[in-house]
């Protein structure tokens, strides 16, 4: 079995869950194993069975308990461990979110499972499973052989290509009874930042600003473009350290590693630590005054020019594009 830990966002299975099921689908023929979607929390509906079935899941392992509706590391760990021990998968896939990464390290340590974090892709050769993942913040790729069964791999959003035309089917629902453990950690308060522009991990588009913006107030140029495109706002380490914007926005080696469809770097020269955090983006646009800036080496499209002239024009153009899109 290939076990895929799914997650819901606002009542719907996330796009990342679909991406993980697609990755499982690609490994399936070589491993000759059914795909099971692990769904903790609320009961699974017939609609869920259709959705997950259509994404490639043969089975749904439903673990119903109110304690699982919000993430708690100890409760989710106990659920995950129980699912792995009872289902005995050959391969386990999960999302490399804040929660996923914490969960994977604990479960791997507890059960002695070989684990690879934030993979680019998997490869199955006979009964051997390999993962390719970036190391040294993207300056190198490591090919890892799993020596354990099961093997466990996590993926960031946007890394696994979605298998678009899988046959429609209903996944078979299997329920697991779960008794939540006594927890040691008490969550006293959850404070959402209220700022959706910091959601760099999930963003399809990121507009980032750097020192070329010259002063903190000028970050509004970047925010305006991001707003027009419904994008998250990123920043270079330089401007975060200078206090222009919070650390939650930082992209790069001591910030977030991001993989959006579109990354627009504005006034960012492209220090190696920054490039490490964004060079896996699908499409990169760089806007910078200095035509020799290293950022242009990784850019698909480079605009050598004044950010203060170009950004307002681009914002107006994007407002029109996105208005048209929502009208359709």
């Amino acid at each position: 079995m290939i076990l895929v830990l799914t997650e819901k966002r606002d009542g719907k299975f996330s796009r990342l869950s679909q991406e993980l099921l697609s990755e499982a689908y690609r490994a399936q023929s070589a491993l000759k194993a059914p795909i099971a979607a692990l769904v903790p929390g609320a009961a699974v509906t017939p609609d869920d069975a259709k959705t997950l079935g259509g994404w490639g899941a043969d089975k749904i392992i439903s673990v119903i308990d109110p304690s699982l509706e919000k993430y708690h590391s100890e409760t989710h760990k106990a659920m995950f461990v129980q699912a792995i021990e009872s289902q005995k998968p050959r391969l386990i896939l999960l999302g490399a979110s804040t929660y996923g990464r914490e969960l994977a390290a604990m479960v791997s340590g507890k059960l002695g499972i070989g684990y690879a974090n934030e993979c680019h892709h998997l490869e199955v050769q006979g009964d051997r499973i390999f993962a390719t993942r970036p190391v040294y913040a993207g300056k190198a790729l490591a090919r890892i052989l799993f020596k354990s069964s099961p093997a466990m791999a996590s993926f960031r959003p946007n890394m696994c290509k979605i298998e678009a035309s899988l046959p429609a089917k209903d996944a078979e629902i299997v329920s697991l009874t779960f008794s939540p453990p006594q927890t040691k950690i008490k969550i006293l308060e959850v404070k959402p930042s209220g700022d959706t522009t910091t959601n760099l991990a999930d963003a399809r588009i990121i507009v980032s600003g750097g020192r070329g913006l010259q002063k903190p107030e000028n970050f509004s140029y970047v925010r305006d473009l991001a707003k027009a495109m419904g994008a998250a706002v990123g920043a270079s380490r330089m401007v975060v350290d200078a206090g222009w914007i919070e650390h939650a926005h930082q992209v790069g080696q001591t910030g977030r590693t991001v993989t959006p469809d579109l990354y627009i770097a504005c006034g960012i020269s492209g220090a190696i630590q920054h490039l490490a955090g964004m060079s896996s983006s699908k499409c990169i646009v760089a806007i910078n005054k200095d035509p020799d800036a290293p950022i242009f080496k990784v850019a698909d499209y480079g605009l050598a020019g004044d950010v203060f002239e170009i950004l307002p024009l681009l914002t107006t153009a994007m407002e029109a594009v996105f208005k048209e899109k929502t009208a359709i």
């Binding site: 300056k139 790729l141 698909d300 480079g302 605009l303």
Partner: peptide, 18 residues
């Protein structure tokens, strides 16, 4: 539980357009 088989530079991004 894991073995590093290979460590290599990532493929270079194709040259972009200015």
């Amino acid at each position: 539980k894991t073995h590093l088989e290979k460590l290599e530079p990532p493929p270079a991004r194709p040259a972009g357009k200015m």
